[in-house]
Design a protein around this nucleic acid. Structure first.
Lengths: 220, 220, 220, 220
DNA sequence: CATGAATGAGTGTTCATTCAT
DNA sequence: AATGAATGAACACTCATTCAT
């Protein structure tokens, strides 16, 4: 059999359909919320008829879950690999992570996921739990390991790690949340990359160990 | 006439009705979103019939707007008065503001407003604009004036003020957003007051001017 | 309170509604079957809007079950009382039963129930079981007791009772089934009362004991 | 050429297809009714794809009509031949007819046709008329000729023939109707052949002429 | 011939809104 | 003022029918 030719148009379409549909759904769910989104509109945006949606998803709720789960997949897998392999300072590593996160996630359609999940968490508690464990807990663990490494090496002060994680992450999250909520109505914000840099500068300064290396007391 | 006794139940009830209704609506809008909330449920929670809602609000949308507008209490007015009158350091003032915000807003039903506004901003852009100007811009202005004062006095380094505002506010917002979204499903978080304190400690350290007073260069 | 005046129109309507709705539904279900009946049509025939149906019945299926159960209620209650109290011969009693059944059930809208239940039994097996026990088994028991009495008294031959029940009932059932199925398309049938009489004549002759009273052998 | 071998599978399949499809459809129509049957299920039961149905039938309605028309086998032709050729008594002839009907029709998938036709008659009046004339009228004519012969010969009393036809046929019909409706839910019935025998015994006794041959008055 | 992906009109169900009481 | 029965437009979902492959 000729395995080199591109597959038939029909087949190629069939395989690509679910992703096209969840992409359209993601945009509308983020914009209008789950209950406020009509399946007609999802179908129209994906360029198919309403019935086609039901060839791939059993219900509106199933579509919603697919949107979330599909959005989660590509995240965080490689992040932990980068952390382990990195040789430089903890501060540089944090910068690297944020620099990668922005173009790969934050500046993508996936950036709408946090707003969506926040809005619908209480309507889909199971999904919220899954999202929490698959994304939030694991994301925080990533930052935690960096902070701990920095504290161990004396690069950072011995701060309360869990709070520090929030101080680092909250502005990032608010950035994407804003963009997909009030930011869409109330005028633009500052330049994102610049903002993220300044943010990290500020936080790293707060984490920095002021004592010269010799006088540092080891963290308990 | 006895002007000290509370008014007749009937009268008092009538005056209190709108607030009772918006209170019930706030809870449900925060929990399920605007489209996901049924007026039957709002009425039931307020202990009235569905028809009664329409005696006080023209439509579901009008109820929603009332919920938001009523939630925007004039507490910011008070805040700016405090800022102007305060004599201590900028750091102490920041601590004071956060310490007041938590019990008066964050730890109240009003704490659900940010989540609600974020979720529905794109469905109610007019309202989002109003909320932005009445709450967000003014709230940031408050923090901005504190930061500027601290920088002017040399207490803080000359940082990028707008970014600093976000670094200060984002964790506070995430705290209340979390509480009304995934926090309702995914287990409790740390103690709120302790968390806020630690957060401010960290940020203030990042803002602090490391140079001794004599060697500080004046902010441009 | 004035308990003698007729109740408010609103209330009177509310109480009567379920029966009006099931009456309309019965006609359409009998005519078109469950799946072939549109709730729009049921509502229209009852003179209400479609939404009103849902004030009284949770779903189309619930409406169907109510139609059946409401149709079953008035049947057979008094029948057994009549059988026990009757003093005449078994043959006369059978005639009486059939003569009562026709104007009270067969010639009524309720006459459509057998056709409906037969058509939908396999789609609603629970309901079919209920109908079987509440109507069919009890109806047969009624005939059985008459036949047994006639056999015991020597009026009837000692025939196979269960078969005889069917021979008596089947033409009655076919009469009403026909009327609500092919009879509605394929022209009228003979006069019903005359037909029922002739039918009973024939069957009673088949049941009659040909032996003179003295030579009858007692049934085992 | 070898004309005795079975034809190529392909060819045989093609010719047999319509019958396979109507067979599958018959079962489902009988079970769920016309409107309640999905063409997906018909196709699945026949082991073909849904599109294939449309190669052989223009529409669901056309399939339904084919099911009915195909089910009206020319067995009645045969029946009238038997009646004319039969030499024995009318009673024996009736027994013969019933004995042949049961294994050839009643105990076959065709036994579901009466229930189906009854259920859908009013939705397909044309078809109902056709069925009435092709099956019911002709079937009754068959019985009528037997009864008339029996009356003419003095074997039967001069009864009302049309009523007698119903008394004979109704239990047979109810037998097959029951089997495909409530019988599928509410437990089994008596042995069919035994039942049919007992039924005929009873009816023939009701038809029998009690007078000795000499005293019989000729039917008018 | 046969397939099964795609369609869209149709139907069951919900719910914001109205209004007679 | 308050009620709650009634409405009907809107939406999720189904399924007979089509057609490119």
């Amino acid at each position: 059999m000729d395995v080199f030719s591109p597959p038939h148009t029909r087949q190629r379409r069939k395989d690509a359909r679910p992703a096209e549909l969840t992409a359209a759904a993601l945009e509308l769910f983020v914009e209008k919320g789950f209950a406020g989104t009509r399946l007609d509109d999802v179908a129209a945006r994906a360029g198919v008829s309403k019935g086609t949606l039901y060839l791939y998803f059993d219900s509106k709720e199933a579509l919603f879950k697919a949107v979330i789960q599909e959005g989660i997949v590509p995240i965080l897998e490689e992040g932990s690999g980068v952390v382990e392999a990195f040789k430089g300072s903890a501060g540089e590593l944090l910068r690297l992570m944020v620099d990668e996160w922005w173009p790969r996630i934050g500046d993508t359609h996936l950036g709408g996921l946090p707003k969506l999940m926040i809005s619908e968490a209480r309507n889909f508690p199971d999904l919220a739990n899954y999202y929490n464990e698959a994304v939030i807990v694991r994301g925080k663990d990533l930052i935690r390991s960096i902070l701990k490494r920095g504290i161990a090496s004396g690069e950072f002060r011995p701060v309360d790690v869990d709070t520090a994680i929030d101080v680092i992450l909250a502005p990032l999250l608010m950035q994407v949340i804003w963009r997909y909520s009030l930011g869409a109505c109330c005028g633009a914000r500052h330049d994102a990359r610049m903002y993220l840099h300044t943010h990290l500068d500020l936080v790293l300064r707060g984490l920095a160990n002021a004592l010269p290396p010799g006088k540092r007391k080891p963290p308990e």
